[in-house]
């Protein structure tokens, strides 16, 4: 057991946060370019890109601070939003390709990002469920060892 008593990110949770941070960086960078260069071509798709990027940033921060009850709720909201986003936009982009001729992070279930946007919410939710704030899990200590 670690000597630290305050709840903090441990073990594989950190890797998850880093993957979220990289996705946030990628989505932010891309939507910045899209909006600066050609926002008028596809306002809907590009606004959605920007929104997705913001949610990734929020989810990253919320996971870092998920030890506190308030941030824990924020993390749930952000990650569920993301899951719904990737499923809805992913489906729409296949069913109604005309609506999403311009790429977003979530088009085609995130195939442009190696399907990471599809897998990530599930890992995030799993991590949240197994790491409730205030509940000290023995398994957490095991994983961190």
């Amino acid at each position: 057991m670690s000597a630290s008593s305050r709840p903090r990110m441990s073990g594989i949770g950190r890797v998850l946060v880093i993957v979220y941070a990289v996705m946030a960086l990628a989505a932010t960078g891309r939507s910045f370019v899209q909006i600066v260069e050609r926002f008028d071509e596809a306002p809907l798709a590009y606004a959605l890109s920007a929104l997705a990027a913001l949610v990734y940033i929020l989810a990253t921060l919320a996971l870092v601070f998920a030890g506190s009850a308030r941030w824990y709720v924020v993390a749930w909201v952000a990650i569920v939003f993301e899951l719904v986003g990737v499923l809805v936009i992913g489906t729409l982009s296949l069913v109604l390709p005309a609506l999403f001729a311009h790429p977003t992070v979530w088009s085609g279930f995130g195939y442009g990002y190696l399907f990471i946007p599809l897998v990530l919410p599930f890992l995030g939710l799993w991590w949240l469920i197994t790491h409730r704030p205030g509940v000290r899990l023995e398994r957490a200590a095991e994983v961190a060892a």
Binding site: G11, I18, V22
Partner: peptide
């Protein structure tokens, strides 16, 4: 990733460096 690894010398920092390199 390297800054993280220097601050926190755990096995997960090694994984994090790997994730950064693959990205």
């Amino acid at each position: 990733a390297v800054a993280w690894a220097l601050l926190e010398r755990s096995r997960w920092s090694t994984v994090i460096m790997g994730v950064a390199a693959l990205s």
